[in-house]
């Protein structure tokens, strides 16, 4: 098992390098970082030149990537352009945990800018994941046990629709129904914008209330897909010999369904959930934009528009690390649950 884990981790490292190279090349056309730094006042040509050299933008892309990765505090930077380096660089490089300074919020490390937003996205993700897992188990098991009934057909149709729904349409529709229409009908309605009501303050109750619609929007697609998946694995397991044995020896039905069958039926779900993290994170971008949720997705959109390379690159790398780590965890958990993989 230890060997298996080590093996998977060793595979993940070159993968992250690959990702960082692809992203870094794509970053080369993000806009003018110096104009972003200058803010409203136009930068003088001489200052531009100096800033360019200070940021290392005059160097070829390979060198720029290397500075980004390993820093430039071991080499002298040529600030005045006479070909001789004067001062040592200040960047430590991503490998030593330095993602550079944000260009938009000047003087603030990119990681700090991102770090402020991570918890907000994280609570959305965790809540959505809970809704997805519990909801799809409930729906999937129910429709598997009532195969071909009216409810089963109804759920099937509904899950196809849910699976085809663009997230923004779910979001807009649910906002219209639960905020606009409910308000019009005099029912208790849900808030649609932000994380909390500024008049009430950031209390747990407020945040939960503001979370309902965004979490719903993020979860619908995966909920629909997983419940189909659980239905089919559940049906498969229910037809196996050991279930017949359990029935034959007279075990009560709930025990057969929830202990014998569900345990094995939920095995493949582990992989699906682990691999769908990119999808969920992508959904957060759209959802956070619509609901004005101050998370990482919205930070990404705002800073992409202004060409804030360190922050954008930082977000993308953090996400990639999360995705790769999740994949490795998924594989490990799966191998742990299913000995056939470990020893196969």
């Amino acid at each position: 098992m230890t060997r298996y884990i080590l093996h998977r981790i060793l595979q993940g490292i070159p993968l992250l390098f690959f990702i960082s190279i692809i992203l870094f090349v794509l970053m080369m056309n993000m806009g003018d970082p110096i104009a972003t730094m200058g803010g409203r006042t136009a930068t003088r040509p001489a200052d531009r030149e100096r800033l360019k050299r200070q940021l290392g933008l005059d160097k070829p892309i390979v060198v720029q990537y290397f500075y980004w990765l390993a820093g430039n505090d071991w080499t002298k930077i040529d600030l005045d352009g006479d070909g001789i380096g004067e001062t040592y660089g200040e960047r430590k490089g991503v490998l030593r945990g330095d993602f550079g300074y944000s260009l938009v919020n000047r003087g603030k490390p990119a990681l700090a800018v991102i770090g402020e937003r991570i918890p907000n996205t994280l609570i959305l993700m965790v809540a959505a994941e809970l809704v997805i897992i519990l909801g799809s188990l409930l729906v999937g098991v129910y429709s598997a046990l009532h195969q071909y009934s009216f409810t089963d057909h109804f759920i099937t149709t509904l899950s196809f629709i849910g699976y085809s729904m663009p997230i923004f349409f779910i979001a807009l529709l649910s906002m219209y129904i639960f905020a606009v229409l409910f308000k019009r009908w005099g029912l208790p309605y849900l808030p649609t914008v932000g994380m909390f009501d500024p008049q009430v303050g950031k209390t747990a109750g407020q945040v939960i209330l503001h979370m309902i619609l965004p979490v719903l929007s993020i979860s619908v697609i995966s909920l629909a897909a997983y419940s189909r998946y659980i239905r089919s694995t559940m049906l498969e397991v229910m037809n196996q010999d050991y279930i017949r044995t359990a029935k034959a020896k007279g075990l009560p039905r709930p025990q057969i369904v929830y202990i014998h069958a569900l345990k094995n039926a939920s095995l493949p779900i582990v992989t699906v959930i682990g691999l769908d993290l990119p999808l969920l994170l992508g959904g957060a971008v759209v959802t956070e934009r619509i609901f004005a949720w101050p998370g990482m997705g919205r930070l990404f959109l705002d800073h992409v528009e202004r060409g804030d390379l360190p922050v954008v690159m930082g977000i993308l790398m953090l996400i990639s690390v999360a995705v790769v780590v999740f994949q490795i965890l998924t594989d490990i958990v799966y191998a742990w649950l299913d000995p056939r993989i470990r020893f196969g």
């Binding site: 993968l15 690959f18 990702i19 692809i22 992203l23 794509l26 970053m27 990119p278 999808l279 994170l281 992508g282 959904g283 971008v285 759209v286 990404f300 959109l301 992409v304 954008v312 993308l316 996400i319 990639s320 995705v323 790769v324 994949q327």
Partner: peptide, 13 residues
């Protein structure tokens, strides 16, 4: 590597 970057982020970039 391409699969690991969520599609929307890749599209935006």
């Amino acid at each position: 590597a391409m699969l690991n970057i969520p599609e929307i982020f890749l599209l935006i970039v």
